[in-house]
Design a protein around this nucleic acid. Sequence first.
DNA 1: TATTGTTATACTCTATAACTATA
DNA 2: TATAGTTATAGAGTATAACAATA
Lengths: 162, 162
Amino acid sequence: MADDSLAPGELQTYFALMEAVNVLQHAVEQQLRAEGDLSSVQFGLLARLSDAGSLTMTQLADGVVYSRSGLTYQAGLLEKAGLVTRAPSPDDERATLVTITERGAELVGRVLPGHVEVVRRLLFAPLSEDDVRRLGEIMATVRDHMRAQPPRSAAPRKRRTT
Amino acid sequence: MADDSLAPGELQTYFALMEAVNVLQHAVEQQLRAEGDLSSVQFGLLARLSDAGSLTMTQLADGVVYSRSGLTYQAGLLEKAGLVTRAPSPDDERATLVTITERGAELVGRVLPGHVEVVRRLLFAPLSEDDVRRLGEIMATVRDHMRAQPPRSAAPRKRRTT
DNA sequence: TATTGTTATACTCTATAACTATA
DNA sequence: TATAGTTATAGAGTATAACAATA
């Protein structure tokens, strides 16, 4: 069919989604900058390291739509700030193992409550429990679908042309 | 109560939402750049002008979380590209009236189908009609709530301290 | 040869503050 | 005096391409 228009409901849904998320992202950015002097990208990296302890650059790049050099830049900033360390991986000398420091973990802990407060105030406050559940189901579906999509842009990683 | 943690469901919902939207935004950015040499911000401005014909800078700034200078910069780029014109408003000589050109409108028309295709393929493809409807309702609720919130960051516009 | 990551570089974008002009 | 917009400037972030080192 290759219908090239969205149904009216889809259009409204798309616009509402994008506007709401943009506002939320902006508010979050403000809060992270004010309370932790972090960008949301930096916070995202720290948060993932906070869970994992250590990750290689490649692992860290997964799930973030980044160029490798951009990630190197951000990791450099975090290292300079004493929030992470970088060292060659024992398993694979090519790989750089990024590890969160105590100070980094502490910063995440310090910034997280305010972050959560912003998200709750802006995103969840007007929603019922059922709304939240449903929204979660829907967005998980979308996210999984997107993960399964062949990324048309990002440099194909680990692509065996055989 | 000022509970400073999100319910587990809320956290998952938040992460799924942000990841999905980030991927979508990235894909949209690629498409717009490839097919129209536009950023999503520029496309957003053109799209709104496409509906309205003309808007003042202030009107154009509403709904976009921008500094005025950032908007001036973008409007300058669009004007340089021949997609909009700028002229003093007849109503209020202080105001700049931004008007989309024929070429601008044509560009929007040319880029829109691809834009829509990306959104449908990534966002709507895995959703049922009911999902879309519900998502639209939820996000409209959130958006309206956010609009009603006092913007803690953006310079208060038209603020009478009286 | 393929993969991991860094560096050099150029460019886009955004914000702040100072400024001009009109209401 | 307040509002609309622009300009100058500086800083953050991102991508591309060339490069070094390891597998």
